[in-house]
Simulated scan of single mutants.
Amino acid sequence: MERALTGPVALTRHDGTLNPDAVGWAAQPVVDTSDLGAGRGRNKRWEYWNVTTPTHIIGLTVSSIDYACVHEVWVYDRQTGQTWGESATVIPARGAVLAPVLEQGRSMARAKNLAIDIDQTPEGTRLRAQIPGLFFDVLAELPEGHERLALVVPWSETRFQYTVKDLARPASGTLRIGSVDHPVLAGESWAVLDHGRGRWPYDISWNWGAGSGCSNGHVIGVQVGAQWTAGTGVSENAFFVDGRMHKIHGETDWEYDIENWRAPWRVRGSGLDATFEPFHNKTTRTNLLILKGHTDQCFGFWRGTFTPEGAAPIEFDGILGWAEEVHNRW
């Protein structure tokens, strides 16, 4: 059983090292990262939002990795397979604001051909982005009592990460491509957040999988991860039913072949038995000397069963999301 955090806690001590009292998980974002301090090039801060709609998949990233800012806006048409996008790597880091604490302040990015604004409202989080020929304005609603996975991962006193994985947020708004408006339909559209603040090793790999949607009369969120948390005593695995989080303790086992990414992926562990069937692979390759990496983010549908401790299995199917393999030197 992984350690549960019971109340607000600071991520770091006064000397900038990891606060051991922050290590563990919570169902709400209780960790204060405002005193992260200087990282000598190792600090990483980001907001990644993804919105799935009946017609499109929308992604946006605002990030600062100390010596550079890396931003992206990306849209995928689920029917035609067409994509639109702009990305920017800004060296040295400038033109970005990242809130010191989740949901306490705005985040934004400005770069050539790209503008992103992430603002808090009484109803939730407003996501706006513009690139040439494309604009969207989406509200990711935060229902009362909605739970999310907040996790502090300790590699050492000087290397650590705070992540919040927030799934199945009801989304609504408008996506405009050219002169055509595409509604982000309430009740059929879902937003997912990956909030990150920490101080990372230079060379690291990870898997992340997420999915949101409705199945068998329930709102389902699938959250799984692997590799990067191995050996730390915590894991980023959880299953959400109607806004309530069930923590999956321990690592999950992943079976997939990135060279044959269209073949079904399998993820299992502590009550979860999930199959992921991809239909699109968003590949990213970066080689800027000290900044080098590859990402295969495969979009598709999750199905399977989750069995909470002492309860009957929950079956789910048709949950739209992604599974990815990433290796970064950053």
Rank of each mutant, 00 (worst) to 15 (best):
M1Y: 12
M1P: 12
M1C: 13
E2D: 06
A4V: 15
L5Q: 05
G7H: 09
G7L: 11
P8S: 08
P8C: 03
L11V: 01
T12P: 01
R13T: 15
H14S: 15
T17L: 10
L18F: 08
P20K: 04
A22H: 02
V23D: 02
S34D: 12
A38I: 14
G39L: 09
G41C: 06
R42D: 07
R45E: 11
R45T: 06
W46R: 00
Y48C: 12
T53L: 04
P54D: 11
H56F: 03
I58E: 00
L60S: 00
T61K: 01
T61Y: 01
S63I: 01
S64M: 09
S64G: 10
A68N: 03
C69S: 14
H71R: 10
V75M: 02
Y76C: 10
D77M: 08
A88Y: 00
V90S: 00
A93H: 01
R94S: 13
V97R: 09
L98H: 09
S107C: 08
K112D: 13
A115R: 11
A115L: 13
I116S: 03
Q120T: 13
L127V: 06
Q130F: 10
Q130C: 15
P132V: 08
L134Y: 07
A140D: 04
E144N: 13
G145V: 05
R148Y: 09
R148E: 11
R148T: 14
A150D: 10
V153L: 06
P154H: 00
T158A: 12
T158Q: 14
R159K: 13
R159H: 13
F160R: 00
A168G: 03
R169G: 05
A171F: 00
S172R: 13
S172W: 07
S172V: 04
G173A: 09
L175R: 04
L175F: 03
S179H: 14
D181H: 02
D181R: 11
D181T: 08
H182E: 15
V184K: 01
G187I: 05
G187D: 08
R199C: 05
D203V: 12
G211T: 09
C214H: 13
C214Y: 11
G225W: 01
W228R: 12
S235Q: 01
R244P: 01
G250Y: 06
G250M: 03
T252H: 01
Y256S: 11
D257L: 05
R262A: 15
G269C: 04
S270C: 12
G271C: 06
A274N: 07
F279Q: 14
K282T: 12
T284D: 15
L288C: 05
G293S: 02
F299C: 09
F299T: 06
T305Y: 02
T307L: 08
E309L: 14
E309W: 10
E309D: 14
D317R: 11
L320F: 14
G321W: 00
W322Q: 11
H327E: 13
N328F: 10
